[in-house]
Amino acid sequence: MVAELIWQHKHNPYAAGLPPAPLLETCEHVPPAPWAGAELVGGTAGMEGWENRLIEGDKRLVLPALLGEFAGAVDLIYVDPPFMTERTYRGGRGLAYHDRWQRNLDGYLQWLYETFLLLYRLLAPHGSLYVHLDWRAVHFARLLLDEVFREAAAAGGGFQNEIIWHYHSGGRPRRSRGFARKHDTLLLYTRSRQYCFHGERVGPVRGRERRNHMRRQVAEDGRVCWTIHSGGRLYRYYEDERMTPADVWCDISHLHQRDPERNGYATQKPAALLERVLLASSEENDLVLDCFCGSGVTPAVAERLGRRWIACDQSPLAIEVTRERLLQMGPRQAFCLQRVAGTVSE
């Protein structure tokens, strides 16, 4: 049984089918950019004939436009949507986006619900969805996702993890009474039990730290290991092996104001965060989607790791910043800039 979240004017606009999908028009083709002596981490095999896509437009139009070609075909989706902060985000390069809802929680929930419904249709049977939010709305998002993934949960999919990204930022809480809020939350949902996951790629090396009541020993081959007896069995773990990654990430810093990685876009996330997500939940040549690409970190990391990607945002600044970020990369696969037909960039 799944609890259902109810709000005013809740409805599934796609229950009776999708409306006619808008068309996407290509505004620019950007050729690949090889660098002498450099290679993509994942190589280029299997990408022949593929062109990555950077799309300007509201996800309400872009996602339906993608469904005709990519329904059930996206291997990994990462989204970092507006958090319902009631703020307008600007940077040194101008307006990034408005995250203002006039305290209309019902409107925000309906907007988020429609987003999840479309993303679910795009997700491959073995695919994974990461939703990045904070304390304001993540508890609502989990109930919405439980509903959208209800059928997937019956097949062993659905909710898999709640990941806490704890960052060491400065500052104090605005209110004198209370604990400082120093983390975001990533929710991981999958379409089925057979989803891609490689913890061995991203887990920390065990190292020399003693855990539980383990004993440190030197194996016959000279490798240092830790052993422990449990349930009548002897378990052996080597110092140079990776552990299963935990669901609390404390080792990835947020981007400081003067961090060289910053490109002038508000709410920019560190590349290390997306690298962990992509390495754990995708393979080379897999298709990655981010419909709130913002600073362009998802397509940039996907490019470097040899994944195919589709990145979208309704903010002209986000598209400009992402395009510039990609152009500075090398080597780089070809990509095209698209927008919904009939719209004009501001």
Rank of each mutant, 00 (worst) to 15 (best):
Y195N: 01
G231A: 12
Y235Q: 13
R242L: 03
K269N: 06
V321K: 08
P299A: 02
A302P: 09
P270I: 04
S128T: 15
S253A: 15
R177N: 03
Q333C: 10
L145F: 00
R177T: 03
M84W: 13
T244N: 09
R223E: 15
G222C: 11
R191A: 15
H98P: 00
P270G: 04
Q314C: 12
G296K: 07
L274V: 10
I55G: 01
I252E: 13
R201W: 10
L54N: 04
A45V: 08
W35V: 14
G92I: 08
H256M: 07
L337D: 13
D251F: 10
C336D: 14
C196P: 02
L289T: 06
D240W: 03
R262D: 09
A141Q: 00
T26M: 12
D106K: 00
L278F: 09
Q110I: 06
H213R: 04
L23V: 11
T267V: 05
A341N: 01
L144D: 08
G127M: 13
G43W: 05
V62S: 05
D146M: 01
E241V: 06
G17V: 02
E241W: 11
R53T: 05
Y14I: 07
G92A: 12
A272N: 09
V301W: 13
Y130L: 13
G37W: 07
E284R: 10
C196W: 12
V218F: 03
P299L: 02
V62A: 04
L122K: 10
